[in-house]
Design a protein around this nucleic acid. Structure first.
Lengths: 125, 125, 125, 125
DNA sequence: GTGGTCTAGACCACG
DNA sequence: GTGGTCTAGACCACA
């Protein structure tokens, strides 16, 4: 369900956080569905439970997850969270596109690229 | 000419490196034009010269700058470096677009966004 | 494991970088094997940890090593890196051979020299 | 007669020294032939005479040149100097070949390379 | 304990 | 004055 890359420059807890966020926000883990327990995930990935806990804490403070003490962690209802994440991603895309323009890339070129990438992708839902 | 953001998670030397790379690759600093000296830039930004040196070293090893000991650092002639940088940026854009698609963004929506961003930009020449 | 030569014109961090690169690329340090820690190597060689760090940073940016903060530095899997290094070395040999030819050395003489050097070497496997 | 490359990592005086040494040792400047005067060469290359002087001083201390105060600098008789230079170059080649062997290059491969490089070269005398 | 970043201050080679 | 190297010492995030 989750894979680690020790050569990634990102710390492990960020890799876990980012992968879980993707799963929740994309609906792969449905609203109110239970996430794997800290200890179970730690055992599966063969890492320290503290590292998993840190990822869960961040996801909770970001609003993607809520935890019920003694029960576990559950995917939050995604409505404005998805919208917020989309806005965040669009800002990043915008910044990159602006730099590309300043490097001489034409609007046509970039639009064509966007069409190619977004069109050929398979639907994930 | 360069601004620092101490709240940015990126280390200072990376911020400087990235900003200078933009200036060189976009032509704002022309080929063979002299960059500010290590000491001058360090004084202006009120940081340690070693930190500037580190940014300059990386830019040199990346090929964006060449330095002549005793004379200064100069912008390299950008040919394939611009192309390489564009490819790098496009890859990043592609990755973000794919995540946006998986969040439910439609191809039409993203293409329209690209048009809006790239079209409304002023010409830089 | 590594020896320094203070009379060498090359800076210390380059000597360390070059020796470690040899160890990694020759397989003396196997893929994913841990390199000595920055502090340990610094203590052993009686030099500043920053100098070691610099060598490690360059090796990482060259792709010969990957580092996991908090865990250590590890030898990268060498595939095309070895090929690239061989090409680099052959270019250097070619340049030297051309200068030798211009000094009057005959092709036969140089070929014989190559045979002597490459033949008398012990096998490393 | 001599060309400078400001992007070369070698300092200018080394570039001049190396090029002049090649000219002398290869016979392009015959024994006892006068080298260009310090001031003339400085003017031609548009650099500081001190830089030229340093190159000449090193060539003299290496024995490739002798200077007659008030007259100029002259190419020394090359006999053992050429032999010494050849020995130096062969040592460098040997070191590189050994590293290539440790990277898995076969003796046959390297001999073939030597033949190709030394054979296809045009005669320079 | 590990790698990573930064500072302060020094010395060197170069032009 | 310029870039380049090195030291000593400090702090941080990570596991």
């Amino acid at each position: 369900m989750i894979s680690l890359n020790y050569r990634d420059s990102r710390p492990i807890y960020e890799q876990i956080r980012d992968e879980l966020r993707k799963l929740v926000v994309s609906g792969a883990i449905a609203a109110d569905e239970k996430l794997p327990s800290v200890r179970a995930l730690a055992a599966q990935l063969a890492i320290n439970p503290n590292t998993i806990q840190r990822a869960y804490n961040q996801l909770e403070s970001e609003g993607y997850v809520y935890s019920v003490p003694g029960k576990g962690s559950f995917a939050a209802v995604m409505d404005d969270a998805v919208a917020a994440r989309k806005k965040e991603l669009l800002e990043q895309v915008g910044e990159l596109l602006r730099e590309l323009r300043s490097l001489g890339a034409t609007a046509e070129e970039l639009v064509a690229f966007t069409q190619a990438v977004t069109g050929k992708e398979e639907r994930h839902d």
